[in-house]
Nucleic acid binder design. Structure first.
Lengths: 219, 219
DNA sequence: CGGCGTTTTGAGAGAGCTCAACATCGGTGG
DNA sequence: CCACCGATGTTGAGCTCTCTCAAAACGCCG
């Protein structure tokens, strides 16, 4: 019955074009029972680059960023994960985490031990396949991120971000955090982002209202 | 016997620290038999973004770049694959390719049909696991690429590239193509790369000789 | 009201991009 | 063998644009 409900939900979400595979969709009961929830305060660290990889996390509420610190000591944001997204999936096959995970807001994460997960993959091919599929999508998403970071023009970079984050109506973008967070997420200084948004608004390309940006032209 | 040779080779390469999982290491005979080799001329296209994803490729010889074309018509290089590397692994679970693949040099690629691969994953969990592992490593590598593209300073970007590509002696980098190709690969104009390399050489940080760059200090 | 973080705007400097000219190298054909 | 040609490699000069440092307005919360 639960299966029916889930697949129904997946179906509906799929139709809406906002379907996202969540952990609950494919993780066996056994693994889910082994999960441990943990609360994080804003800016609290979940794990660090180089620390022992003990398992994977799912963000239940709030937002958690994956980041690295470059040679000049500046932090580079690789990704910001929200509810339903997973962290450190790729670390299942590596001894150490390969980036830092820090809470962007107060957040709750669910921890799935590596051992249980790998055992589940051995036992249940469907589970393993779902995981593989998720990784495959991750690879595509990351390629898109590389594309984005390669854009030097702030205006183009913001446009790229907006295009990738419009809602179902193809013109509304709901921002998930502060503009400052967004700036870090797309690899700009916050000043550059403010100026760019202001310029886009003046030119009539977008309109802003608190946490929402509306494109004047549908993409 | 062939297996013995291969695993032996893998063992040796592993010891040398230059081990890289190749398709032959984990792909079942059945799939390998279904493979088709194809020759590519320099700048010949293997597949395009949006075209139907029919399978995965392995580069046998030469180099093939994965790239996208940005809104200004400029080409962005996402990755350059050399012998032993695979292309479009992630597209196994998607209907279309999500970037272009173009030969950087005359090249030979081996094609593995999607159907055969997916069937092999169903049949043989070990195979599926090896594939998943590869994707996981890919994810980590891509994160590193994002980190690199986020660096705006040409000097730092080149340093980052060199650091990631030194050989076993921790100071020699063998370039795989032209400097122009490298510039595209790391997201710089070729002029910027030339100047940066020249500056690094003047400052004594590196020495150059045709296709080789030697760092003065071990990393 | 005071304090803190976000949002905004200003001014200046640095650095990569662009356009341009030229050198270099390998291959081709007369 | 040499001239020619295309592509790579190299250097120069100017421009644009983002970063950086600064300062101030704004909003929220205790």
């Amino acid at each position: 019955m639960i299966g029916d409900i889930l697949s129904n939900q997946s179906y509906v979400l799929g139709l809406l074009g906002i379907f996202q595979m969540t952990v609950e969709d494919w993780l066996p009961v056994k693994v889910r029972r082994a999960a441990i929830d943990r609360e994080l305060k804003t800016n609290e660290t979940l794990f660090r680059l180089g620390s022992k990889a003990v398992g994977m996390y799912e963000v239940i509420s709030g937002r958690v960023r994956l980041c690295r610190v470059d040679s000049t000591g500046r932090e580079i944001v690789l990704h910001v994960a929200g509810p339903g997204e997973t962290l450190a999936e790729a670390s299942l096959y590596s001894a150490e985490y390969h980036c830092d995970a820090v809470a962007n807001t107060d957040a709750t994460v669910r921890f799935f031990p590596k051992r249980e997960l790998l055992a589940a993959f051995e036992m249940n091919p469907k589970t393993a396949q779902a995981f593989t599929k998720m990784l495959a999508h991750q690879v595509m998403r990351l390629r898109t991120s590389i594309e984005q970071r390669n854009i030097r023009s702030a205006r183009e970079r913001v446009r790229h971000f907006l295009a990738l984050n419009v809602g179902p109506d193809s013109r509304t973008v709901r921002l998930r955090g502060t503009l400052k967070d967004l700036a870090a997420e797309i690899g700009l200084t916050h000043e550059a982002l403010y100026r760019t948004l202001a310029a886009l608004e003046v030119s009539g390309e977008i309109r802003r209202k608190d946490g929402i940006i509306v494109l004047s032209k549908r993409i």
